[in-house]
């Protein structure tokens, strides 16, 4: 594992910690899209089906369990915690997330490495992860007030896949020279979807102003 991959994983983990901290400490999930969070549960469950059949390293196993566990915890908080659920911006979280599920699944049926249940679902999870942020970005655009923790959460979540792209470049040129098109293309699309957000996030950070996305 190279430093970019580790930095990517840590950034991903950190984004989740920031989100859980916001929810737990402020007892509020305002500005957070439940649809995006539910998509992440599906992403992790379909990607880590191999949790008990394929052992890569203790690090991988622990991280997989953490990602599955925390994604369930976030959804539980937003749906069932009696205080937190009242802060959910239900009327603004309007993105039809099931419209993402079907195309990603069809694409995974068409473009995959091996036609096996495990591999098609793994491929599906990569396609779905690439677009899972869309409901969250739409919600942010509709929010007048984006609090710092929410802004930071989305920033670190986007930065994680960007660091993975650097990891892939490093692996390809300096380690094994193997092309992994499915994660690469998905990861590039995923990172590109954040471009607009990154622009306004960095702008607001430079000007010491509150983050606001143009509608």
């Amino acid at each position: 594992m190279n430093l970019f991959r580790l930095a990517g994983d840590m950034t991903h983990l950190f984004s989740i910690i920031v989100l859980l901290l916001k929810i737990h400490a402020t007892k509020s999930c305002s500005g957070i899209s439940l649809k995006t969070q539910e998509l992440y549960v599906i992403v992790f469950l379909t990607r880590y089906l191999d949790l008990f059949t394929r052992f890569v390293s203790l690090y991988n196993t622990v991280m997989k369990i953490v990602f599955i566990g925390t994604s369930f915890a976030i959804v539980w908080y937003m749906r069932y915690h009696k205080v937190v659920k009242q802060t959910y911006n239900k009327d603004e979280d309007t993105f039809k997330h099931y419209f993402l599920l079907l195309p990603c699944f069809v694409l995974a049926l068409l473009l995959h490495n091996e036609f096996t249940t495990m591999d098609v679902l793994w491929t599906f999870s990569l396609y779905l992860e690439a677009v899972a942020i869309l409901p969250q970005l739409v919600l942010l655009q509709q929010s007048r007030n984006i609090d710092n923790l929410t802004g930071n959460y989305v920033f670190f979540l986007g930065a994680y896949r960007g660091l993975y792209v650097l990891n892939w470049i490093y692996r390809y040129f300096l380690q094994d020279h193997r092309a992994r098109w499915i994660p690469w293309i998905s990861g590039l699309v995923q990172t590109a979807l954040y471009a607009d957000f990154f622009y306004y996030y960095i702008l607001s950070w430079k000007k010491h102003e509150k983050l606001k996305l143009p509608a």
Partner: peptide
């Protein structure tokens, strides 16, 4: 093997 497809990543 797993490294070939990228399944050794998260």
């Amino acid at each position: 093997d797993d490294g070939f497809s990228g399944k050794d990543e998260l």
